[in-house]
């Protein structure tokens, strides 16, 4: 159980959440972190279970999301790390943070660029996941079109500046970086009301 000071510090740091909302997110965190291994920390299998409803299988995006949430790189997501990352998904979080997070997510090999090979890998993974079959020619055509648009200096990789310009031109590509639910977290997790340390 977190102290009021810890909750208040996390709320303060997040710049998006109130203390009550951090408490509500703690309820969600506890639920996920006890789903497989009851140690109060989120392991990759638990994040996978929460996202896919199954702990089995391998998913490229899950690996990247987990890696970004796991700031200390100790193979678990602590509550503080959970709040740090999830706050980027708040509707009021700065657009700059969302652009930065999505860039790091797609920069699979963490080279500071989103390379064409990485984009292909993610397209293929998404098609596999949704059981859609496209010919290799069509995938290459999609990549050609995307890079024509995003890779303005034509070096076959997308820099952070190019990514920013691309996102501003096509805001829908980071639509998933905003979770409207986070604006009303306390309503989504009413159970926290019974545990709250904050009086009205």
């Amino acid at each position: 159980r977190l102290t009021f000071r810890e909750l208040a510090d996390l709320a303060d740091e997040s710049r998006c959440f109130s203390v009550n909302e951090v408490e509500a997110l703690y309820e969600l965190y506890k639920k996920i972190s006890c789903s497989i291994i009851d140690d109060g920390l989120i392991h990759k299998e638990e994040l996978q279970l929460a996202l896919f409803r199954t702990p089995a299988g391998k998913n490229l995006f899950l690996d990247r999301v987990f890696d970004l949430f796991d700031e200390k790189k100790n193979s678990v997501i602590e509550f503080e790390e959970f709040i740090h990352s999830i706050s980027v998904f708040h509707p009021n979080a700065p657009l700059e943070d969302k652009i930065d997070f999505s860039f790091r997510l797609y920069d699979l090999r963490q080279t500071g660029f989103i390379e064409r090979e990485e984009v292909k890998q993610m397209v293929v993974a998404t098609l596999l996941e949704s059981e859609v079959q496209l010919s290799d020619d069509l995938v290459e055509a999609i990549l050609d079109k995307t890079f024509e648009d995003a890779d303005t200096d034509k070096d076959n990789r997308i820099s952070k500046e190019e990514w920013k310009a691309f996102v501003l031109k096509h805001p829908s590509v980071i639509k998933k970086m905003t979770l409207p639910t986070l604006k009303d977290t306390t309503a989504a997790f009413p159970s926290f009301v019974f545990n709250t340390q904050v009086e009205d």
């Binding site: 929460a50 896919f52 397209v123 949704s130 079109k145 590509v173 979770l179």
Partner: peptide, 25 residues
């Protein structure tokens, strides 16, 4: 649709990137 030729619009549909699922009851 023009979006269908946008690799990132396609990628953003992946379930692994759909954190909204965390909030599903």
């Amino acid at each position: 649709k023009p979006e269908s030729m946008n690799a990132f619009a396609l990628i953003s549909r992946s379930q692994g990137f759909n954190l909204g699922n965390l909030f599903e009851k």
